[in-house]
Design a protein around this nucleic acid. Structure first.
Ligand SMILES: [Zn+2]
Ligand SMILES: [Zn+2]
Ligand SMILES: [Zn+2]
Ligand SMILES: [Zn+2]
Lengths: 132, 132
DNA sequence: ACGCTTGTTGAGAACGGTTGTCAAAGATCG
DNA sequence: CGATCTTTGACAACCGTTCTCAACAAGCGT
């Protein structure tokens, strides 16, 4: 039952800490492999899953359905503005949106309400790169 | 180049019109098969894809990643409150949210902004059913 | 330091939704 | 009706993710 500290687990956490952006499991796997700190793909998935369960990482789905992971600065509920090209991310607070979402849902007689609110765009860097 | 009107295409559209809720491609395929109006699964996917491209149906992703389709009453931009058990749906307007989303993204220097705003819950019917 | 126990790893198979393949079927038009 | 050219559908391929299970190693008691 006790979670053991393994080389692989720490490697995944470290990689996430160094990367400020949302990354897919496969990207992380490749990053680790590239720096010699090789970890099995299944293990990367398991580590990310465990971190997500512990609310240590945020997960969101790219437009193509792939899951993206990120170790956010704040642990409290928040949303993201994400560059769809490079994964660059800004954390977003939306107090008014939070209130709006729960009010609307309750007014329709719905329970166990959750909301998905994510903003996608092209960051300044990627725009500059694509212009050249 | 001209889109031809085929039995399969009309069958998919009719099934969508009769169903008020978000449904997966496989659910629709099964529904059609059950009523004798048999259509190949690949064809169901292609028809839904074409309808989505023409903005005739809305598409959203369930929490498990499956795509769900619905022919909404209004063609204009809107969002949804969806029962995660039965797909029952309420269309939602959020003028304040729209303004909030574009303002926040622009303030961070992002371009080509899109937003994903969906509300998930348990509808009154499903709650009543689960209590019994 | 040394086993023991038990959680963890990793290569590959399996899975599930979705898309591609391509010969046969059929919608449209002259 | 016949020619044309899109559409269909059974099936394979794809791709991200999860499962399997024997080998491995963390933590612990000695
Ligand atoms: Zn970018
Ligand atoms: Zn929120
Ligand atoms: Zn329901
Ligand atoms: Zn909107």
């Amino acid at each position: 039952m006790a979670a053991r500290m393994t080389r692989q687990r720490t490697a995944v956490v470290e990689a996430l800490d160094e990367l400020a952006d949302f990354r897919s499991a496969q990207q992380l796997h490749e990053t680790l492999r590239a720096r010699g700190e090789s970890v099995g793909l299944a293990t990367v998935y398991r580590a990310l899953q465990a971190l997500a369960d512990a609310s240590e990482v945020d997960v969101l789905r790219a437009e193509d359905g792939e899951s993206l992971y990120r170790r956010c600065a704040r642990r409290e509920h928040h949303h993201h503005l994400v560059c769809r090209h490079c994964g660059s991310t800004v954390e977003i607070d939306g107090p008014t949106v939070e209130a709006w979402a729960s009010k609307v849902a309750a007014a329709q007689g719905f329970d166990d309400i959750e909301h998905t609110i994510e903003l996608w765009g092209t960051c300044a860097d990627c725009r500059a790169a694509s212009v050249s």
